[in-house]
Design a protein around this nucleic acid. Structure first.
Ligand SMILES: [Zn+2]
Ligand SMILES: [Zn+2]
Length: 170
DNA sequence: GACCACGTAGCA
DNA sequence: TGCTACGTGGTC
């Protein structure tokens, strides 16, 4: 399938994230200032304190070392434990880049914030996974989903023409 | 889930 | 301006 570039969207797709992390939304759900905030591209930096971070030498044997020319990835033995934590997408009524959309994860160097990419949505859960992807609940109108579950939701809509029964725009 | 390719953020 | 490597989509 053709890869998406910044700002591109697939035909017929009304929300999602492009390769550069740009999000777009159903018309009318996000105003321009909000869209600019939600569209910002962020990169985390290695913590510098975990064991992998303190390693100085590439192993030279892992797939990332062998494929460095095209893969552009750090040696697996040097990959920061904090950066290994996965980002979350948060769906809640309205716009969700608020403080209560943030999450934390325990790592070898303590509790670290996990980035919430934020998404505008309507209250409701993933109907494809029968709400099993809900990891936690923060407040009356807030749900948190693992990112992969949201990708699955989108894939379902794109490939199988799935239509949400709850009105969710995830 | 591992791997690969790619664009480019972030920094020196 | 060049380098490292993060984040992500796509494939296997
Ligand atoms: Zn390695
Ligand atoms: Zn680290």
């Amino acid at each position: 399938m053709k890869k998406l570039r910044h700002g591109e969207r697939r035909e017929g797709q009304t929300d999602g994230i492009c390769k550069s992390g740009c999000q777009w939304f159903e018309a009318g759900t996000v105003d321009q200032p909000q869209a600019l905030v939600l569209c910002q591209k962020k990169k985390r930096r290695r913590c510098g304190e975990c064991v992998p971070c303190t390693r100085r030498e590439n192993c030279g044997k892992c797939s990332n070392c062998r494929n460095r020319k095209t893969g552009h990835q750090i040696c697996k033995q040097r990959k920061c434990e904090v950066l290994k934590t996965k980002s979350w997408l948060c769906a809640e009524v309205g716009i969700s880049n608020s403080a209560n959309a943030q999450g934390t994860t325990e790592t070898s160097v303590g509790k670290v914030p996990v980035p919430c990419l934020g998404i505008g949505g309507v209250e409701g859960a993933c109907v494809i996974s029968d709400r099993k992807c809900v990891k936690g609940r923060r407040g009356k109108d807030s749900f948190r989903f693992h990112k992969k579950c949201l990708l699955l939701c989108r894939r379902g809509r794109r490939e199988r023409g799935h239509v949400s029964q709850t009105g969710s725009k995830i």
